[in-house]
Simulated scan of single mutants.
Amino acid sequence: MASLMRLFRREEPMADKLYRAVVARARDPLWYVAGEVPDTLEGRFSVLATLLALTDVRLERGGEAARFASVSLAEAFVGDMDAQHRQLGTGDPVMGKKVGGLVGALGGRIGAWRRAVDGTESWTAVTVRSVYRGEAKNVDALDHVERQLRGYWAGLEGTSDEALIAGTLP
């Protein structure tokens, strides 16, 4: 019986703690108050996907374990989006398309943040697209969010692979 239980046990993704830490960071009210990101499903997704994208870019630049954690972080994201949309009432016939679209949105952000971090695209332009979906209404709010994202990136760069994988964020 014990071996049967192991067969059906859900394995926790390697980066599950990291994913939960990024989700907690995305829930910080400062994004929605000082940053004026709309406090809606779409606005919250934009903040989460932006932080995940920056985290993923950092993991890609790490050692082998960090690169493996990058894949696990994506798996945790897919699992969470599936669960969240099921709770919202999304049915099986459209679930794959919906979650696939969210994964695509994350992938687009990862590419954009790679360019921002590498200096081939401006942080401001990527912030506007990634967080505000192309339209930042308030320059002060945009400046606040960009400063927060730059600080987050600097902290990620200064965090060891091991600490990051364990869910320790700057």
Rank of each mutant, 00 (worst) to 15 (best):
L4P: 06
D118F: 08
V139Y: 12
P29K: 05
R61K: 11
S160H: 12
F68H: 05
Q87A: 12
S122G: 05
D140I: 10
A26V: 11
V23I: 09
L54T: 03
A65F: 12
R61T: 07
A26N: 09
G158P: 06
S3P: 01
R61I: 08
T120P: 12
L51R: 03
L149G: 00
G101P: 02
A74K: 07
L156S: 01
G104F: 14
G35Y: 00
R133A: 14
M5D: 13
L18G: 07
L88Q: 02
F77T: 02
A34K: 15
L59R: 03
R44T: 01
G155V: 02
M5R: 15
D16M: 05
Y132P: 01
V126D: 03
G62N: 13
Y32W: 08
R114M: 13
G101H: 14
R10W: 09
H85E: 04
F45S: 00
V33D: 02
L102Q: 02
L156T: 01
T55N: 04
D56R: 06
Y19A: 09
A163M: 13
I165F: 02
R25H: 12
W153Y: 06
E146L: 02
D16P: 05
Y32I: 15
V47H: 00
V71A: 07
M5C: 10
R27A: 08
A154M: 07
V71E: 04
R115E: 10
T127V: 15
M81E: 03
A65R: 04
S3L: 05
G158D: 14
G108P: 06
R114N: 14
L4D: 12
L30T: 14
T127W: 00
W153T: 14
S130K: 12
N138F: 12
Q87W: 07
N138Y: 09
A69M: 09
T159R: 01
H85P: 00
A74S: 09
F45T: 00
A105S: 11
D28K: 03
P170T: 09
A116S: 07
M81C: 08
V57A: 15
L41V: 09
A125G: 10
E36L: 05
L73S: 11
A49R: 02
A2Y: 14
L59G: 00
A15T: 00
G43Q: 04
R10F: 15
R86D: 11
A2T: 14
W123V: 13
G63S: 06
D92R: 08
A49K: 02
T159V: 03
S72F: 04
G43D: 04
F8V: 11
L149S: 01
V94Q: 11
G62W: 05
G100C: 10
